[in-house]
């Protein structure tokens, strides 16, 4: 039977993924045999455990909590990033004023604030949100300010020639141009937001999948630890992919140049 080019493409992709999976499984089994301890379970037992995990309603609740924290933290952080980014990009004084503090905060890994946060406000969902917002705003602010500064001179000139009002300049030129740079920042900081919610769960026990992972680890449920890590990988991949798709849809000109 002859295959159409499209079908052939799908078959090829399927074959490649099967090969990837096969090789990964083989490597995993080799590693499990070498380590040969309960802490490195075999693939089949992990997959079984993974099935049990996704049948569990508590897991889904945890997942939703994690998502909620990620989204709230991301939105708050993004708002801050836009305010700070616009301010630093449009005013030289403010740039000098703020950049040293922003850079100092950026070079501190956010997790070192966790002990402080847990001591002062406890290990609640709010703690995770505050930390996530901080991480997102510090990551995104650079993209926002770069996006404003990289606006094409000629576009600004044309706005001047045709006497566009400030408002229409912002809507038609600055914002679209900004978004083509910032969309990359969105993608990266969404992944970071997710990572931060998980980190805060693992380190201080804020609600969500991170805390569940930590419990599994301290209860020596080794299969569970692996299952959670696989789940986190899947969610991480999905977040990245979603933002990629959005980027391709909305920022079509950037992708196609």
């Amino acid at each position: 039977m002859k295959l159409l080019p499209v079908q052939r493409k799908f078959v090829n992709i399927g074959q490649n993924y099967a090969l990837t999976f096969g090789i990964t499984a083989a490597l995993w089994e080799c590693a499990a045999l070498t380590v040969n301890s309960r802490s490195f379970p075999h693939l089949n037992s992990v997959l079984l455990d993974l099935l049990n995990l996704i049948k569990n309603i508590d897991f889904w609740k945890s997942l939703i909590v994690t998502f909620n924290l990620t989204i709230i933290g991301f939105v708050i952080g993004a708002l801050f990033a836009f305010a700070l980014g616009l301010a630093t990009a449009l005013n030289k004084r403010l740039n000098l004023l703020l950049s040293s503090s922003i850079n100092f905060l950026r070079s501190i890994p956010s997790v070192v604030f966790l002990p402080l946060l847990v001591a002062s406000i406890g290990a609640s969902a709010r703690t995770a949100i505050i930390l996530t917002a901080l991480v997102v705003s510090l990551k995104l602010v650079i993209f926002v300010s770069r996006g404003v500064l990289e606006t094409e001179m000629e576009h600004i000139e044309f706005a001047k020639i045709y006497h566009l009002s400030t408002f229409s300049k912002i809507c038609n030129i600055y914002i679209p141009s900004l978004f083509s740079v910032v969309s990359t920042g969105f993608r990266l900081s969404a992944s970071r937001a997710f990572g931060t919610v998980i980190a805060s769960g693992i380190i201080i026990g804020t609600p969500g999948l991170g805390r569940d992972l930590l419990f599994a680890e301290s209860n020596a449920e080794y299969e569970r630890v692996f299952s959670y890590v696989i789940i986190l990988g899947i969610v991480g991949t999905l977040i990245y992919a979603t933002f990629n798709v959005i980027e391709r849809q909305f920022i079509h000109w950037r992708v196609n140049i």
Partner: peptide
């Protein structure tokens, strides 16, 4: 007022996020 301007580099003078008609309609914004 009442001046048209065309530059050399079309890749930079057109707004890539607008369709052809929206690009052409840009001067109407004011």
């Amino acid at each position: 007022n009442s001046m048209g301007f065309v530059t050399q580099d079309y890749s930079r003078s057109l707004l890539p996020w607008f369709s052809v008609e929206k690009n052409v309609a840009l001067p109407f914004k004011a």
